[in-house]
């Protein structure tokens, strides 16, 4: 096993994800790590944030006198509205998602498989109280679903795997994984004879070291 250096910090990772969000996109950022992406979206790119509890044009977290109990994000954190914002009910909000109108959804994950399966709602612990929220709708709804996560657990186990062991959130729904060690395309869109997982970029590890860490054979996205 190779010692890993120069991996991306959470903020660097958020900036890396933000760089790939196209100008003018409608974007949903999941709870947790993906929320950091909003800090790195440059003004003037015309990117509109969707929050599935019923709003487009969500602004930054609210503080002080701006806190309004009627204006929260999907994590129930008070937020602000930007010029041009709109509100809508839950069925419209998820129709917007499910109907493919949201360009990009960025989600956290416990596990992602090379075929793009996502597990991010349940740890599978038998005594846990289950809760799913909008996770399954977000996973399958957007035109592109990206995952943002650390590539290994705290114990060093890979989170990009051949097959998810945890209960699934969605099947073949993730197209790209952004992690502290690498950006990897996943899913069935690979051409004939290609690996399902194709490395786009690595951070502080070589391609071979990455394969060793994950115990997977990886292709290259550009070939």
């Amino acid at each position: 096993m190779t010692a890993v250096g120069q991996h991306l910090s959470k903020d660097q990772l958020a900036a890396r994800v933000a760089r790939d969000i196209p100008a003018g996109a409608y974007v949903n950022l999941g709870i947790g790590l993906p929320t950091l992406v909003s800090d790195h979206l440059p003004a003037g790119r015309g990117i509109t944030l969707h929050t599935e509890n019923g709003m487009l044009g969500m602004g930054p977290a609210a503080t002080g006198a701006d806190v309004d109990p009627d204006l929260v994000n999907a994590g129930k954190v008070p937020v602000t509205e930007l010029s041009g914002a709109s509100y809508f009910h839950q069925a419209d909000s998820f129709a917007m998602m499910r109907g493919g109108h949201i360009d990009v959804c960025v989600l956290g994950a416990f596990e992602v498989s090379v075929s793009g399966d996502l597990a991010n709602w349940s740890t599978g612990a038998p005594d846990a109280i289950p809760a799913v929220g909008g996770a399954m709708d977000l996973a399958v709804g957007a035109r592109d679903t990206w995952v943002m996560m650390n590539l290994l657990t705290k114990g060093g186990a890979p989170k990009l795997v051949e097959r998810c062991a945890l209960p699934l959130t969605g099947v073949a729904c993730v197209s790209r994984v952004y992690s502290d060690l690498a950006v990897v395309d996943v899913g069935p869109d690979a051409g004939p004879g290609q690996h399902l997982a194709r490395v786009v970029e690595t951070f502080g590890v070589t391609h071979a070291e990455l394969e060793d860490l994950l115990g997977l054979e990886l292709g290259r996205a550009d070939g």
Binding site: E52, H89, Q90, A91, S93, F94, A95, M97, R98, P130, A131, V132, G133, G134, A135, M136, D137, G141
Partner: peptide
Amino acid sequence: LVPQGNLAE
């Protein structure tokens, strides 16, 4: 337990 969008729909 129902996914939120399914609950809404």
